Computed example of a mutant assay.
Amino acid sequence: MIVCFDIGGTAIKGGFAFSGEDVRPLPRRPTPLHDYDAFVGELRGVIEQADATPDCVAISIAGVLDPDTGVATIANIPCLHGRPLVADLEADLGLPVIVANDADCFAMAEAHNGAGRGHAIVFGAILGTGVGGGLVIDGKLINRGGFAGEWGHGPVAATLAGSPPVELPRFQCGCGLKGCIDAVGGARGMERLHTHLSGAALTSEEIVQAWESGDVDATRTIDVLIDLLASPLALVVNVTGATIVPVGGGLSNSLSLLREIDAAVRARILRRFDRPLVVQATCRPEPGLVGAALLGLEFSASQQH
């Protein structure tokens, strides 16, 4: 048995995992953002509910770990940012600790228990507040600290997009670069695009609703957004050989949007598919928790051989 966590800036979701199909969530706890000792206390509070000593603690979190130093970059939880997180948590919890990026955990969950089941190469894409992803090949996560699969970052966003094409600036990204897909492709990116193109400030939900109702301005925004997303995602598919791209995050709730992205991506890749490639994620209800559990169970199994 392992203890698994899916940790965000608002809540800590904990649970016990006995297999990849038997993950038992517990009630959520608030995330202490500025007090490391309080944060560790919340994790201990979950671990102490276990009937036996767990094999390890596996954590899904929105951040990356430097693969050389182990130092964490976790901007939304300041008390963890800049720490050698695995080493600190192992010392404080007295158990082996695995920490993985939340998009990587999502990809693992989809590859094993979701839309990617049965596929050898699965690229899990996140279209949420921003743009992220993770790559799983033959059931194994391709990961060096959470950096693999991050197609949202890198200054590759087109500056001419849509039909007819419109010129776009290289928007500033939170990672420090300009021109990242993350800055134009997620929910905040969609809102930024819509304001730039129409002058109106709407939420991503309002933009999608307006588009689905035939609004001219929203239709233009979605047209540009799909053009901006499809080419980089097509390149990811060509480079990895992925045969399925499950999508999670808030924007994946619009099946109409996913269908349009899927059609645009399939038109731009070398391999031809006569079935959907970019699809809605199906692992429910907590893919981050399930993905962390799978990584923890994998670690536990490796220690027994």
Rank of each mutant, 00 (worst) to 15 (best):
N238K: 10
V216H: 10
H153T: 05
V208W: 04
L168R: 06
G176K: 00
D223F: 09
E212A: 12
W211E: 00
G176A: 01
L229M: 12
S213W: 07
S231A: 11
D217G: 10
P155C: 11
L160W: 10
V237F: 02
T203Q: 10
I181M: 15
G174I: 00
G162N: 01
L160T: 12
L235Y: 09
I181L: 15
I181W: 09
C175M: 09
L160N: 14
E206G: 15
A157D: 01
P164Y: 08
E205S: 15
V216E: 15
A200T: 14
V208M: 13
G174F: 09
R188F: 14
V224G: 02
S198T: 15
L168M: 03
G154A: 07
K178D: 11
R170M: 12
C175P: 00
G174H: 08
G214S: 13
L168E: 05
C180H: 03
I181T: 14
D227S: 11
L228N: 01
A234V: 03
S198V: 05
P155R: 07
V166L: 02
L228S: 00
C175T: 04
T240M: 02
Q172C: 04
D217H: 12
D217M: 12
A161M: 03
E205R: 15
D227G: 03
T203V: 10
V224Q: 03
I222P: 03
P165Y: 10
R192W: 01
T195S: 08
M190S: 09
T221D: 10
A210I: 06
D182L: 07
H194N: 11
M190T: 14
S231N: 06
W211H: 06
L229I: 12
A230P: 03
N238G: 05
T240Q: 00
G174M: 05
T159F: 03
L235S: 14
N238Q: 11
V239H: 08
I181C: 09
G214W: 12
F171T: 05
A187F: 07
T195Q: 13
E205P: 01
P165Q: 12
C173R: 05
V184N: 04
A183V: 02
V166M: 01
G162Y: 07
V236G: 10
P155D: 11
R220Q: 14
W211K: 04
S213I: 00
D227F: 04
S198G: 10
P232A: 07
A242R: 03
P169W: 06
V156M: 11
